[in-house]
Design a protein around this nucleic acid. Structure first.
Lengths: 186, 186
DNA sequence: ACTTAGGGAGAACGATCGGTCTTTCTCCAT
DNA sequence: ATGGAGAAAGACCGATCGTTCTCCCTAAGT
Protein backbone atom coordinates (compact mmCIF):
# COMPACT_ATOMS: atom_id res chain seq x y z
CA UNK A 1 0.00 0.00 0.00
CA UNK A 2 2.68 2.55 -0.78
CA UNK A 3 0.88 5.82 -1.32
CA UNK A 4 3.87 8.14 -1.26
CA UNK A 5 6.44 9.61 -3.60
CA UNK A 6 9.44 7.30 -3.51
CA UNK A 7 11.78 10.07 -4.65
CA UNK A 8 11.69 11.88 -1.33
CA UNK A 9 13.97 10.72 1.42
CA UNK A 10 12.61 7.83 3.52
CA UNK A 11 12.86 9.82 6.73
CA UNK A 12 10.79 12.62 5.22
CA UNK A 13 8.35 10.14 3.72
CA UNK A 14 7.88 8.57 7.10
CA UNK A 15 7.39 11.90 8.86
CA UNK A 16 4.87 13.13 6.31
CA UNK A 17 2.91 9.91 6.41
CA UNK A 18 2.95 9.89 10.21
CA UNK A 19 1.78 13.51 10.33
CA UNK A 20 -1.14 12.74 8.06
CA UNK A 21 -2.21 9.58 9.88
CA UNK A 22 -1.65 10.85 13.43
CA UNK A 23 -3.72 13.92 12.72
CA UNK A 24 -6.50 12.15 10.86
CA UNK A 25 -6.92 9.10 13.08
CA UNK A 26 -5.20 9.78 16.38
CA UNK A 27 -1.81 8.73 17.66
CA UNK A 28 -2.47 5.58 19.64
CA UNK A 29 -4.83 4.44 16.90
CA UNK A 30 -2.07 4.30 14.29
CA UNK A 31 0.43 1.49 14.77
CA UNK A 32 3.95 1.11 13.49
CA UNK A 33 2.95 -1.47 10.90
CA UNK A 34 0.50 1.00 9.43
CA UNK A 35 3.12 3.75 9.34
CA UNK A 36 5.84 1.75 7.63
CA UNK A 37 3.53 0.16 5.07
CA UNK A 38 1.89 3.44 4.02
CA UNK A 39 5.20 5.26 3.97
CA UNK A 40 6.81 2.40 2.01
CA UNK A 41 9.57 2.22 4.60
CA UNK A 42 10.87 -0.74 6.56
CA UNK A 43 10.79 -1.10 10.29
CA UNK A 44 14.58 -1.00 10.36
CA UNK A 45 14.54 2.38 8.65
CA UNK A 46 11.91 3.62 11.08
CA UNK A 47 13.97 2.84 14.14
CA UNK A 48 17.18 4.00 12.50
CA UNK A 49 15.79 7.55 12.39
CA UNK A 50 13.54 7.57 15.44
CA UNK A 51 14.56 5.62 18.57
CA UNK A 52 10.90 5.15 19.58
CA UNK A 53 7.46 5.90 18.24
CA UNK A 54 7.14 8.76 20.71
CA UNK A 55 10.14 10.43 19.10
CA UNK A 56 8.29 10.34 15.80
CA UNK A 57 5.25 11.82 17.51
CA UNK A 58 7.39 14.61 18.94
CA UNK A 59 8.86 15.23 15.48
CA UNK A 60 5.34 15.36 14.03
CA UNK A 61 4.35 18.08 16.48
CA UNK A 62 7.64 19.96 16.18
CA UNK A 63 7.41 20.27 12.42
CA UNK A 64 3.75 21.19 12.70
CA UNK A 65 4.70 23.96 15.11
CA UNK A 66 7.42 25.22 12.77
CA UNK A 67 5.01 25.33 9.87
CA UNK A 68 2.44 27.26 11.88
CA UNK A 69 5.02 29.72 13.15
CA UNK A 70 6.18 30.36 9.59
CA UNK A 71 2.56 30.93 8.55
CA UNK A 72 1.95 33.43 11.32
CA UNK A 73 5.22 35.21 10.60
CA UNK A 74 4.27 35.52 6.95
CA UNK A 75 0.83 36.90 7.64
CA UNK A 76 1.88 39.41 10.31
CA UNK A 77 4.95 40.70 8.46
CA UNK A 78 4.82 44.45 7.95
CA UNK A 79 1.26 44.83 9.22
CA UNK A 80 0.21 47.23 11.99
CA UNK A 81 -0.35 45.40 15.25
CA UNK A 82 -4.13 45.27 15.21
CA UNK A 83 -4.27 44.03 11.64
CA UNK A 84 -1.61 41.45 12.43
CA UNK A 85 -3.65 40.29 15.41
CA UNK A 86 -6.78 39.85 13.32
CA UNK A 87 -4.80 38.07 10.62
CA UNK A 88 -3.28 35.67 13.14
CA UNK A 89 -6.69 34.68 14.46
CA UNK A 90 -7.89 34.66 10.88
CA UNK A 91 -5.51 31.79 10.17
CA UNK A 92 -7.19 29.85 12.96
CA UNK A 93 -10.64 30.48 11.55
CA UNK A 94 -9.59 29.60 8.03
CA UNK A 95 -8.06 26.32 9.14
CA UNK A 96 -11.43 25.08 10.36
CA UNK A 97 -12.66 25.16 6.77
CA UNK A 98 -10.01 22.78 5.46
CA UNK A 99 -11.35 19.51 4.12
CA UNK A 100 -9.09 17.47 6.31
CA UNK A 101 -9.58 19.63 9.39
CA UNK A 102 -9.71 17.52 12.53
CA UNK A 103 -9.07 20.05 15.27
CA UNK A 104 -5.81 21.22 16.77
CA UNK A 105 -2.88 18.83 16.49
CA UNK A 106 -1.59 19.86 19.89
CA UNK A 107 -4.86 19.68 21.79
CA UNK A 108 -5.64 16.32 20.24
CA UNK A 109 -2.21 15.02 21.15
CA UNK A 110 -2.47 16.35 24.71
CA UNK A 111 -5.66 14.34 25.13
CA UNK A 112 -3.64 11.20 24.42
CA UNK A 113 -0.66 12.11 26.61
CA UNK A 114 -1.83 12.69 30.18
CA UNK A 115 1.64 12.93 31.70
CA UNK A 116 2.64 16.62 31.77
CA UNK A 117 6.32 15.66 31.97
CA UNK A 118 6.25 13.60 28.79
CA UNK A 119 8.43 14.86 25.95
CA UNK A 120 5.37 15.17 23.71
CA UNK A 121 3.70 17.46 26.22
CA UNK A 122 6.77 19.67 26.26
CA UNK A 123 6.51 20.24 22.52
CA UNK A 124 2.88 21.18 23.08
CA UNK A 125 3.76 23.55 25.91
CA UNK A 126 6.43 25.21 23.77
CA UNK A 127 3.97 25.83 20.99
CA UNK A 128 1.37 27.27 23.35
CA UNK A 129 3.91 29.51 25.02
CA UNK A 130 5.02 30.82 21.65
CA UNK A 131 1.46 31.51 20.50
CA UNK A 132 0.54 33.28 23.71
CA UNK A 133 3.65 35.43 23.39
CA UNK A 134 2.75 36.44 19.85
CA UNK A 135 -0.75 37.47 20.89
CA UNK A 136 0.45 39.34 23.98
CA UNK A 137 3.06 41.30 22.04
CA UNK A 138 0.62 42.19 19.28
CA UNK A 139 -2.03 43.23 21.81
CA UNK A 140 0.54 45.38 23.56
CA UNK A 141 1.66 46.99 20.30
CA UNK A 142 -1.95 47.57 19.38
CA UNK A 143 -2.28 49.64 22.53
CA UNK A 144 -4.56 47.29 24.41
CA UNK A 145 -5.10 48.30 28.04
CA UNK A 146 -4.38 44.80 29.36
CA UNK A 147 -2.41 42.86 26.73
CA UNK A 148 -1.95 39.78 28.88
CA UNK A 149 -5.64 39.44 29.59
CA UNK A 150 -6.46 40.04 25.94
CA UNK A 151 -3.98 37.39 24.88
CA UNK A 152 -5.32 34.90 27.41
CA UNK A 153 -8.85 35.48 26.21
CA UNK A 154 -7.77 35.10 22.60
CA UNK A 155 -6.11 31.80 23.48
CA UNK A 156 -9.42 30.62 24.97
CA UNK A 157 -11.18 31.60 21.74
CA UNK A 158 -8.48 29.94 19.65
CA UNK A 159 -8.69 26.64 21.51
CA UNK A 160 -12.46 26.74 21.43
CA UNK A 161 -12.59 27.54 17.73
CA UNK A 162 -10.23 24.74 16.79
CA UNK A 163 -12.39 22.28 18.66
CA UNK A 164 -15.70 23.76 17.64
CA UNK A 165 -14.67 23.81 14.01
CA UNK A 166 -14.27 20.09 14.20
CA UNK A 167 -17.33 19.20 16.24
CA UNK A 168 -19.80 21.91 15.22
CA UNK A 169 -20.45 23.79 11.99
CA UNK A 170 -17.09 25.12 10.84
CA UNK A 171 -18.34 28.16 8.95
CA UNK A 172 -20.42 29.28 11.91
CA UNK A 173 -17.51 28.82 14.26
CA UNK A 174 -15.27 30.82 11.95
CA UNK A 175 -17.74 33.69 11.86
CA UNK A 176 -18.22 33.56 15.62
CA UNK A 177 -14.48 33.67 16.21
CA UNK A 178 -14.03 36.58 13.81
CA UNK A 179 -16.76 38.60 15.46
CA UNK A 180 -15.62 37.80 18.99
CA UNK A 181 -12.06 38.81 18.17
CA UNK A 182 -13.15 42.04 16.51
CA UNK A 183 -15.18 42.96 19.58
CA UNK A 184 -12.31 42.10 21.88
CA UNK A 185 -9.76 44.21 19.99
CA UNK A 186 -11.59 47.37 19.04
CA UNK B 1 -5.37 -4.90 42.46
CA UNK B 2 -9.00 -4.41 43.52
CA UNK B 3 -9.29 -0.78 44.57
CA UNK B 4 -13.06 -0.53 44.74
CA UNK B 5 -15.88 -1.08 47.18
CA UNK B 6 -17.10 -4.60 46.67
CA UNK B 7 -20.53 -3.79 48.09
CA UNK B 8 -21.62 -1.81 45.06
CA UNK B 9 -23.03 -3.63 42.07
CA UNK B 10 -20.40 -4.97 39.64
CA UNK B 11 -21.86 -3.04 36.73
CA UNK B 12 -21.62 0.20 38.69
CA UNK B 13 -18.16 -0.70 39.93
CA UNK B 14 -17.05 -1.26 36.36
CA UNK B 15 -18.55 1.99 35.10
CA UNK B 16 -17.04 4.04 37.91
CA UNK B 17 -13.63 2.49 37.43
CA UNK B 18 -13.83 2.98 33.68
CA UNK B 19 -14.86 6.61 34.10
CA UNK B 20 -11.92 7.29 36.36
CA UNK B 21 -9.36 5.54 34.16
CA UNK B 22 -10.68 6.77 30.81
CA UNK B 23 -10.64 10.33 32.04
CA UNK B 24 -7.27 10.17 33.74
CA UNK B 25 -5.32 8.22 31.15
CA UNK B 26 -7.26 8.28 27.89
CA UNK B 27 -9.56 5.70 26.35
CA UNK B 28 -7.34 3.78 23.96
CA UNK B 29 -4.63 3.77 26.62
CA UNK B 30 -6.74 1.73 29.06
CA UNK B 31 -7.28 -1.89 28.10
CA UNK B 32 -9.95 -4.34 29.15
CA UNK B 33 -7.56 -6.27 31.39
CA UNK B 34 -6.82 -3.09 33.30
CA UNK B 35 -10.52 -2.29 33.67
CA UNK B 36 -11.61 -5.67 34.98
CA UNK B 37 -8.68 -6.03 37.36
CA UNK B 38 -9.08 -2.58 38.92
CA UNK B 39 -12.85 -2.92 39.11
CA UNK B 40 -12.50 -6.42 40.59
CA UNK B 41 -14.81 -7.74 37.89
CA UNK B 42 -14.34 -10.63 35.49
CA UNK B 43 -14.27 -10.36 31.73
CA UNK B 44 -17.50 -12.36 31.56
CA UNK B 45 -19.23 -9.79 33.74
CA UNK B 46 -17.82 -7.01 31.60
CA UNK B 47 -19.25 -8.38 28.38
CA UNK B 48 -22.50 -9.38 30.04
CA UNK B 49 -23.30 -5.74 30.70
CA UNK B 50 -21.55 -4.08 27.76
CA UNK B 51 -21.43 -5.81 24.36
CA UNK B 52 -18.20 -4.03 23.44
CA UNK B 53 -15.70 -1.69 25.01
CA UNK B 54 -17.13 1.17 22.97
CA UNK B 55 -20.47 0.65 24.68
CA UNK B 56 -18.74 1.15 28.00
CA UNK B 57 -17.11 4.29 26.62
CA UNK B 58 -20.51 5.58 25.52
CA UNK B 59 -21.93 4.80 28.97
CA UNK B 60 -19.02 6.66 30.56
CA UNK B 61 -19.82 9.77 28.55
CA UNK B 62 -23.58 9.44 28.98
CA UNK B 63 -23.40 9.30 32.75
CA UNK B 64 -20.89 12.15 32.74
CA UNK B 65 -23.33 14.20 30.69
CA UNK B 66 -26.18 13.40 33.08
CA UNK B 67 -24.12 14.44 36.07
CA UNK B 68 -23.16 17.72 34.43
CA UNK B 69 -26.75 18.46 33.41
CA UNK B 70 -27.90 17.87 36.98
CA UNK B 71 -25.18 20.21 38.23
CA UNK B 72 -26.19 22.97 35.85
CA UNK B 73 -29.86 22.50 36.67
CA UNK B 74 -29.10 22.79 40.36
CA UNK B 75 -27.05 25.96 40.00
CA UNK B 76 -29.43 27.76 37.66
CA UNK B 77 -32.62 26.84 39.53
CA UNK B 78 -34.59 29.92 40.56
CA UNK B 79 -31.91 32.39 39.50
CA UNK B 80 -32.49 35.30 37.13
CA UNK B 81 -31.15 34.57 33.66
CA UNK B 82 -27.95 36.57 33.82
CA UNK B 83 -26.98 35.15 37.20
CA UNK B 84 -27.78 31.67 35.97
CA UNK B 85 -25.58 32.25 32.95
CA UNK B 86 -22.65 33.36 35.08
CA UNK B 87 -23.18 30.44 37.43
CA UNK B 88 -23.21 27.97 34.54
CA UNK B 89 -19.88 29.22 33.25
CA UNK B 90 -18.72 29.41 36.85
CA UNK B 91 -19.07 25.64 37.05
CA UNK B 92 -16.69 25.35 34.11
CA UNK B 93 -14.13 27.60 35.71
CA UNK B 94 -14.37 25.82 39.05
CA UNK B 95 -13.85 22.44 37.45
CA UNK B 96 -10.42 23.45 36.20
CA UNK B 97 -9.29 23.73 39.83
CA UNK B 98 -10.09 20.11 40.68
CA UNK B 99 -7.09 18.02 41.63
CA UNK B 100 -7.91 15.37 39.08
CA UNK B 101 -8.85 17.82 36.34
CA UNK B 102 -7.68 16.60 32.98
CA UNK B 103 -9.74 18.68 30.55
CA UNK B 104 -13.16 18.04 29.09
CA UNK B 105 -14.25 14.42 28.93
CA UNK B 106 -16.05 15.02 25.66
CA UNK B 107 -13.32 16.93 23.89
CA UNK B 108 -10.72 14.40 24.99
CA UNK B 109 -12.88 11.55 23.77
CA UNK B 110 -13.55 13.28 20.45
CA UNK B 111 -9.81 13.47 19.88
CA UNK B 112 -9.70 9.68 20.07
CA UNK B 113 -12.77 9.05 17.91
CA UNK B 114 -12.27 10.66 14.49
CA UNK B 115 -15.35 9.14 12.88
CA UNK B 116 -18.25 11.62 13.27
CA UNK B 117 -20.76 8.81 12.80
CA UNK B 118 -19.42 6.73 15.68
CA UNK B 119 -21.81 6.17 18.58
CA UNK B 120 -19.35 7.80 20.96
CA UNK B 121 -19.35 10.95 18.86
CA UNK B 122 -23.12 11.06 18.98
CA UNK B 123 -23.08 11.16 22.78
CA UNK B 124 -20.62 14.02 22.50
CA UNK B 125 -22.80 15.86 19.99
CA UNK B 126 -25.84 15.44 22.22
CA UNK B 127 -24.03 16.94 25.15
CA UNK B 128 -22.77 19.87 23.12
CA UNK B 129 -26.22 20.52 21.67
CA UNK B 130 -27.71 20.51 25.14
CA UNK B 131 -25.10 22.91 26.51
CA UNK B 132 -25.46 25.31 23.61
CA UNK B 133 -29.24 25.28 24.09
CA UNK B 134 -28.90 26.12 27.75
CA UNK B 135 -26.63 29.07 27.02
CA UNK B 136 -28.79 30.34 24.18
CA UNK B 137 -31.98 30.23 26.24
CA UNK B 138 -30.34 31.94 29.20
CA UNK B 139 -28.82 34.61 26.94
CA UNK B 140 -32.24 35.19 25.39
CA UNK B 141 -33.93 35.43 28.79
CA UNK B 142 -31.20 37.79 29.94
CA UNK B 143 -32.21 40.10 27.09
CA UNK B 144 -29.10 39.70 25.03
CA UNK B 145 -29.38 41.31 21.59
CA UNK B 146 -28.07 38.22 19.77
CA UNK B 147 -28.52 35.19 22.04
CA UNK B 148 -27.27 32.70 19.46
CA UNK B 149 -24.05 34.57 18.86
CA UNK B 150 -23.56 35.04 22.58
CA UNK B 151 -24.08 31.34 23.19
CA UNK B 152 -21.68 30.39 20.39
CA UNK B 153 -19.03 32.69 21.82
CA UNK B 154 -19.57 31.28 25.30
CA UNK B 155 -19.12 27.77 23.91
CA UNK B 156 -15.79 28.84 22.43
CA UNK B 157 -14.75 30.20 25.82
CA UNK B 158 -15.97 27.05 27.55
CA UNK B 159 -14.02 24.73 25.27
CA UNK B 160 -10.95 26.90 25.52
CA UNK B 161 -11.15 27.13 29.29
CA UNK B 162 -11.48 23.40 29.74
CA UNK B 163 -8.40 22.82 27.65
CA UNK B 164 -6.44 25.74 29.00
CA UNK B 165 -7.18 24.73 32.56
CA UNK B 166 -5.43 21.48 31.85
CA UNK B 167 -2.48 22.75 29.84
CA UNK B 168 -1.91 26.19 31.30
CA UNK B 169 -2.29 27.66 34.79
CA UNK B 170 -5.77 26.72 35.97
CA UNK B 171 -6.36 29.66 38.32
CA UNK B 172 -5.38 32.14 35.61
CA UNK B 173 -7.65 30.45 33.11
CA UNK B 174 -10.51 30.52 35.56
CA UNK B 175 -10.07 34.25 36.16
CA UNK B 176 -9.77 34.92 32.43
CA UNK B 177 -12.94 33.00 31.72
CA UNK B 178 -14.83 34.80 34.45
CA UNK B 179 -13.76 38.20 33.21
CA UNK B 180 -14.44 37.40 29.57
CA UNK B 181 -17.92 36.12 30.36
CA UNK B 182 -18.74 39.14 32.49
CA UNK B 183 -17.70 41.44 29.66
CA UNK B 184 -19.70 39.44 27.16
CA UNK B 185 -22.91 39.48 29.19
CA UNK B 186 -23.11 42.96 30.64
C1' DA C 1 38.48 -1.28 -6.18
C1' DC C 2 36.92 -1.34 -1.45
C1' DT C 3 34.70 0.12 2.41
C1' DT C 4 30.74 1.57 4.65
C1' DA C 5 26.32 3.47 5.70
C1' DG C 6 21.54 3.44 4.53
C1' DG C 7 17.73 1.22 2.96
C1' DG C 8 14.63 -2.94 1.65
C1' DA C 9 12.45 -7.30 3.04
C1' DG C 10 10.73 -9.83 6.47
C1' DA C 11 11.02 -13.03 10.57
C1' DA C 12 10.63 -12.86 15.30
C1' DC C 13 10.29 -11.01 20.21
C1' DG C 14 7.20 -10.73 24.46
C1' DA C 15 3.36 -8.15 25.67
C1' DT C 16 -1.11 -6.65 25.20
C1' DC C 17 -5.22 -5.77 22.44
C1' DG C 18 -10.61 -6.72 22.37
C1' DG C 19 -13.39 -10.59 22.80
C1' DT C 20 -15.10 -15.59 23.77
C1' DC C 21 -15.31 -19.57 26.33
C1' DT C 22 -15.99 -23.17 30.20
C1' DT C 23 -16.60 -24.15 34.89
C1' DT C 24 -17.99 -23.35 39.52
C1' DC C 25 -20.40 -20.95 43.07
C1' DT C 26 -23.88 -18.05 45.29
C1' DC C 27 -28.11 -15.90 45.78
C1' DC C 28 -32.95 -15.26 45.07
C1' DA C 29 -37.56 -16.21 43.48
C1' DT C 30 -40.70 -19.56 42.63
C1' DA D 1 -36.59 -27.61 47.13
C1' DT D 2 -35.42 -26.30 42.59
C1' DG D 3 -34.30 -23.59 38.80
C1' DG D 4 -32.19 -19.78 36.77
C1' DA D 5 -29.61 -15.66 36.64
C1' DG D 6 -25.49 -13.20 37.83
C1' DA D 7 -20.91 -13.25 39.04
C1' DA D 8 -16.14 -15.14 40.01
C1' DA D 9 -11.96 -17.31 38.12
C1' DG D 10 -9.25 -17.98 34.51
C1' DA D 11 -7.94 -20.37 30.15
C1' DC D 12 -7.97 -19.18 25.49
C1' DC D 13 -8.58 -16.91 20.69
C1' DG D 14 -6.39 -14.41 16.68
C1' DA D 15 -4.66 -9.99 16.00
C1' DT D 16 -1.86 -6.23 16.89
C1' DC D 17 1.19 -3.56 19.87
C1' DG D 18 6.20 -1.42 19.94
C1' DT D 19 10.67 -3.17 19.22
C1' DT D 20 14.76 -5.88 17.67
C1' DC D 21 16.93 -8.77 14.68
C1' DT D 22 19.31 -10.95 10.43
C1' DC D 23 20.32 -10.89 5.65
C1' DC D 24 20.97 -8.77 1.20
C1' DC D 25 21.39 -5.06 -1.95
C1' DT D 26 22.73 -0.57 -3.58
C1' DA D 27 24.98 3.95 -3.75
C1' DA D 28 28.41 7.05 -2.36
C1' DG D 29 33.21 8.10 -0.49
C1' DT D 30 37.92 7.00 -0.26
Amino acid sequence: MPTVDRDVHPKIRLLETASRLFYAEGIHAVGVERLVSEAAVTRATFYRHYPTKDDLVAAYLSTTSERIRAGVDAVTQGKPAREALLATLGIIGDRTLDDDFRGCQFLNAAAEYPDPAHQVRQVIDDHRDWFFGVLRDLARDAGHADPKHAARTLVLLRDGALHGGNLDDAETVRATLHRAVAELVP
